[in-house]
Design a protein around this nucleic acid. Structure first.
Lengths: 345, 345
DNA sequence: AATCGGATTGTAAACGTTTACATCTCTTAT
DNA sequence: ATAAGAGATGTAAACGTTTACAATCCGATT
């Protein structure tokens, strides 16, 4: 019964192969530094013993763990789950393992988790968005832990980011909505506190209005938490003023848009004939609901993959690569129709 | 500039507090074994130095990492992402960290990942479903790594499981469909190879038919990969025989059901008047599509949480707790209507 | 008063790697 | 023929904890 036998160590391999532990270690880590004949003998020994390096010992001696941490708001949201998936794939591909922690969208919890993962020996960190205290960056710098920010692009971020421009995305969509002839717009935004992505989306919409000769005040914004029911309630409030109803409602994300769709249904409004509704993110169900949702497509998978690549590059070269901005694209589907003025032409 | 200063170690703390490293270690791990006065002094030293234990050294000396690994098919699927989220929450709550690896639904990749996480020093493992080679269990037993299986229940599994009975869930749903008067049933199943969950769902449907006095052959089953388009194609094939069309189509999961819904739309069939369609999983969009989807609700979050609890219990006590089966529930919504015989009454 | 035993703390040996440095063996240029 | 240099390998010192064991102290029991 090999049941309680200790797993083989470097020593065991070294003995069997008739070399020193240093040579075995080199065989495993820098094979080109050892001559072929020796290498073969060592590899044979490794195989016959079924040796696996002890992770903790290796991490301690080499002072790095080959582990990358990710702190995300939640995996409940397909947006992050999907990006995390491709992040993990790319990491595994390069011999790194993924450590996951979630912050539930709370900056203080995020800070805790970052510190926890750092203590856990993460070689690098994936962070979401920009809203956090500056001390965190100081902490990471002092501990020399490379980090990249994803899901949001900002040119002057303290660490490289691989994301998209939330503001530009929403601006493009809002511009298209305005081009359809809508002049009275409403917006159901996500909670903007501690969430720069949500805030930038609001700003993008406002910018589009201003560019079209309107003012920011022409956009009535209501914030709603990430939830179908909350969005539904928000839509009802938005449509409550009989004299000043919007003809199009921009939603901060697809979940809110679906809630808005439900709200419109409740009010007996046809979409898009009576009311246009748009989303953001292009989640899977965006083309599954009816009407299908006009929304902004976000390159989730590309973002995760790019984040992994950037991080690995930082780890390998020690340099700080420049940020990369990924493109978004407006997806025109059924929930956006022409505005009332266009109709009267 | 404290920029290149090494982080403080146990020694530094011990020196500052005027005690030995052993005492500091005890303060941190078993505070009740050290007298209050000493403890206070040590804690003060820890704080003033900003000391954080070195994870790798700790893992090596204590021979455990306080890290749990999870090998899931993919986070792209909300089913797993959601369960993983609650798994992570519960883990964090107990001081463990989550290591994630994905298998892309391939058993050989799963095996690799299990070995990788074991080598990575995972104290325990979360696995999905039952289909894998027996050697893996031998490997885990030999390495003494506790594991739990989730997302599927099976009484005689080699390790505890915290899941639901896929077969019973589908049986219950199919029974309800039959009770609506449907006699010609079709099924669009997920790929059953290497996926016991998909297979059990087929079997559950067959059992319901048999219980209702029909035979297994009365259920025409087509497998489709996890994809809206594939399911749509499958529906077209199912409805291709003019003489023998099903009046209700059971789908192996909600994604397939939505695909089927789209296929029905293409064929000009009204759901549920002309054709009933059901799903499985109760994903978020199940009540967002139209018609809303009759499906089987699965307790994702409870499953993840329970899995974490079971695993932690195994780690703490060394015992093997018994499996826990979580209930599923049929959710009746708009996509299931009465069968043709019932109509003619 | 002597002894015992429990509580508290210290000593030092692991834990299994990596890696700076030393050593040795060949080539090759002089 | 010899010195220098390059390449392969060995030696042994970290790396920062945990923990078995030893030592000490103190009050209680006899």
């Amino acid at each position: 019964m090999p049941d309680d036998e200790k797993p083989p160590t470097l020593h065991d391999v070294a003995n069997l192969a008739g070399v020193s532990t240093a040579t075995v270690s080199r065989c495993l880590n820098t094979p080109d530094k050892v001559v072929a004949e020796t290498r073969d003998r060592v590899i044979a020994a490794v195989q016959s013993l079924g040796y696996t390096p002890n992770f903790a010992a290796r991490a301690m001696a080499a002072r790095r763990s080959h582990t990358i941490g990710a702190v995300i708001p939640t995996m409940d949201n397909a947006i992050f789950a999907r990006g995390l998936q491709s992040f993990e794939e790319e990491l595994t591909h390069h011999g790194y393992t993924l450590l996951v922690a979630s912050s539930a969208y709370q900056t203080d919890r995020e800070e805790q988790q970052i510190r926890a993962l750092a203590a856990r020996g993460a070689d690098g960190l994936l962070l979401i968005g920009h809203d956090r205290s500056p001390e965190i960056y100081a902490f990471l710098a002092q501990r020399q832990i490379p980090a990249v920010i994803s899901w949001a692009f900002k040119a002057d971020a303290p660490v490289p980011c691989t994301g998209f421009d939330n503001r530009a995305g929403m601006r493009a969509l809002a511009t298209d909505v305005l081009a359809q002839g809508h002049r009275k717009l409403g917006m159901i935004a996500g909670i903007t506190k501690g969430n720069d992505r949500a805030l930038q989306r609001v700003k993008g919409a406002q910018e589009a209005l201003v560019s079209a000769g309107l003012t920011e005040d022409d956009l009535q914004v209501i914030e709603a938490r990430y939830d179908v029911e909350a969005a539904k309630a928000a839509l009802l409030r938005l449509m409550a003023q009989p004299d000043d109803r919007p003809t199009a409602v921009l939603c901060g994300n697809d979940i809110l848009a679906v809630g808005a769709l439900r709200g419109a249904e409740d009010l007996g409004l046809r979409v898009p004939e009576d009311l246009s509704i748009t989303g953001f993110d292009d989640l899977e169900f965006a083309h599954l609901v009816s009407p299908t949702l006009t929304t902004v497509h976000v390159p989730h998978r590309a973002m995760g993959q790019q984040a992994a690549r950037t991080l690995i590059q930082m780890l390998r070269t020690g340099e700080t690569p420049s940020s990369v901005e990924l493109p978004t694209a407006v997806r025109h589907r059924g929930s956006l129709g022409p505005g009332p003025e266009a109709e009267s032409l």
